[in-house]
Design a protein around this nucleic acid. Structure first.
Lengths: 204, 204
DNA sequence: AATTAGTAAATGAACGTTTACTTACTAAAA
DNA sequence: TTTTAGTAAGTAAACGTTCATTTACTAATT
């Protein structure tokens, strides 16, 4: 039996991410991908059922899975609130700054119906994907450190600004001035945290 | 001279938005649109140069322009900070709750290279589009009510969570339980505001 | 050690369909 | 009669996908 060439499989994935970043998801075609990855179109169909399958696997494995691993590095659900959130911000920024392709596809996940479907198909709830963060927030809400909110609301308040800022960073990365610095990001993180904290020592 | 039929033009736009919301931007084709709008494909090309032109005009006129008008209703750049931000949140939520098609296309604007291009092509900077908000924030930063940040950073901190929450609202709108209520939104808005405010009467 | 059978990997060329867009024409008003 | 709006029926090119075949290797048999 002929052994499969792992390089080809990796090339397909890498080139797909590259095309999506450079030309957009809507300009990724199987034939263009095959040519750019130096592979026959048919080869892609040996490794993936169809285009949808390829995109979903790319999204889950290369983007969601890889991001989950990166964001939880040195994070512990028992951390103090402020330290924990800062760690998550740091990890996210560090990951996406060096993996812009992943960030681009992640953004598509918010608009494309296909990628939205990916969550449900694989039965991956955000609660499962980011379970430690989920528990971290639930614990601090119970302890009275922060307000009680549904998880999605906590996520919106704590991390939506971060993604906007990363997007801004990436858009400015090939321009002369970069407004988004590590220091600024830390300031922003502190701002977000201080809004969330319940101030027990304050009148009213 | 034969007068143009305004109904057809409106039908084209309305049906395009509808298809984008129901099937996604990537599934909008000129032929499908023509058939659904009960119009010949050529008719679309009388009114729009090409598909790109159609999408950009849809995006600018029906989404950005309409949103700008809605968000600034009863907003005055001289308002007190907290009241101003709350008004902007309220207006945004009210607008998108009743114009989900606009929200869907707006989300595509964050990933699609084509729609990103739309801003630059028409020379519409966000500063122009939302000039009163820009001045509102600059004034409060100068007055020391809030921290000094670039506009994009203010926007990320104040409004990125809102868009996430609206997205959550829309995704749950045809399910039994709706976690996002007006009251919750006001709570979130207050949280965001209190993070931004500089507390002059506080130790450290 | 040499030969052969079997198998999955990989391919180039093509399939039928859909794409964005046009051509050649008619309808309707100035 | 001139001008424009609108259409039905196209176009070539690109699309996702498949066919028939070859390649590269393993394992069994000589």
């Amino acid at each position: 039996m002929r052994p499969r060439n792992i390089e080809k499989e990796e090339s397909i994935r890498a080139v797909a991410l590259k095309i999506i970043q450079e030309e957009g998801l809507e300009n990724l075609s199987m034939q263009k991908l095959a040519k750019a990855a130096n592979v026959s179109p048919r080869t892609i169909y040996i490794k993936y059922e169809n285009k949808e399958d390829l995109l979903i696997k790319l999204f889950i494995d290369e983007v969601l899975g890889a991001y989950e691993a990166a964001v939880l590095e040195n994070f512990d659900e028992n951390m103090e609130f402020s330290a924990g959130v800062k760690r998550l911000w740091q990890n996210s920024f560090r990951y996406f700054r060096h993996n812009r392709q992943a960030f681009t596809l992640m953004q598509y996940g918010k608009s494309s119906p296909l990628l939205n479907k990916a969550f449900r198909e694989r039965d991956i709830q955000e609660g499962q994907f980011f379970a430690p963060i989920h528990r971290f927030l639930a614990r601090h809400a119970s302890a009275g450190t922060i307000q009680h909110f549904p998880f999605q609301v906590h996520r919106a308040l704590l991390f939506a600004p971060l993604f906007d800022l990363i997007n801004e960073y990436i858009e400015h990365s090939d321009r002369p001035a970069q407004p988004i610095t590590d220091e600024l990001l830390l300031d922003c993180c502190q701002t977000v945290i201080s809004g969330m904290l319940i101030k027990t020592n304050k009148h009213q």
